[in-house]
């Protein structure tokens, strides 16, 4: 099994896109998940529904609206043009934004569930022990919600790697800029180049399985996490 230079390029781009999107999503989704987990606001329902939309919408629908909004006459497009950034469709940045929206629920929901399951008590205990709000987040919430964050990161990453429809709508097919693995496979099949389609597809299959196996290894076996913590404590 050999990979052509263009195959390798799409692979690297896919990994870069997925890493960028995952990191940005973790930063954006942590406060959002916190708010969803803690709020009693009436906006909780509508916001949760919006966050979950990408779960049910066909990627082409989401991609279509983003294409329109980010185009020269769209709301986002006008703002980015004003700022001198040009328009986002068919650029790497546009692909990042679209992927973030598309993978949002996969990152928000595990973090939100993890924060909800911690409850108020450990946070209150930390406050009575003299920890301020930011200190409490890093010393109590983050370690206790760690499995949720790991799940969120893995799902966000894997889901971004696996997207196709939204990439075609927003990113198109520009080698080195927006052409990711899933699109490359599609192109190989279109060109009846089944051998190369096979190589890439098999790679994706193995990659996805390994990622999921790792994920279930972490969350399915709490003892691993516990032993890890214990080892850390003993060293400290």
């Amino acid at each position: 099994m050999t990979l052509s230079e263009s195959d390798l390029q799409t692979l690297l781009l896919t990994l870069k896109l997925a890493t960028t999107v995952t990191l940005l999503l973790l930063i954006v989704c942590t406060p959002l998940s916190w708010w969803l987990a803690k709020t009693t606001s009436r906006l909780k329902g509508p916001v949760s529904a919006i966050v979950a939309l990408p779960l049910v919408l066909p990627p082409t629908v989401l991609g279509f609206y983003l294409l329109v909004a980010m185009g020269p006459n769209g709301i986002i497009g006008e703002v980015t043009t004003q700022l001198g950034l040009g328009t986002l469709p068919f650029t790497y940045s546009g692909l990042v934004i679209a992927s973030m929206l598309y993978s949002l629920p996969f990152v928000v929901q595990p973090i939100q569930n993890a924060i909800e399951s911690i409850g108020e008590r450990p946070i209150e205990v930390a406050a009575t022990l003299g920890a301020g709000p930011i200190d409490r987040f890093f010393s109590v919430v983050l370690p206790l919600a760690k499995p949720g964050f790991i799940t969120a990161a893995v799902l966000g990453f894997a889901h971004t790697v696996g997207e196709f429809g939204i990439v075609l709508m927003i990113g198109g097919n520009i080698p080195g800029e927006t052409k990711v693995v899933s699109v490359q496979i599609y192109d190989h099949v279109e060109a009846l180049d089944y051998a190369n389609a096979h190589s890439l597809s098999l790679l994706m299959l193995v990659f996805s399985f390994v990622v999921l196996l790792g994920l279930y290894g972490v969350t399915g076996n709490r003892n691993t996490t516990r032993l890890f913590n214990r080892a850390k404590q003993d060293r400290g």
């Binding site: 008590r121 009575t128 920890a131 301020g132 370690p143 206790l144 913590n229 404590q233």
Partner: peptide, 25 residues
Amino acid sequence: VPTHKRNIGYVFQEPSLFEHLTVKG
């Protein structure tokens, strides 16, 4: 004055230890 700035100790009804830390932690 926020809780963390009041010099109090609080023992809750249920033990409420931090599960991610050892007793020493």
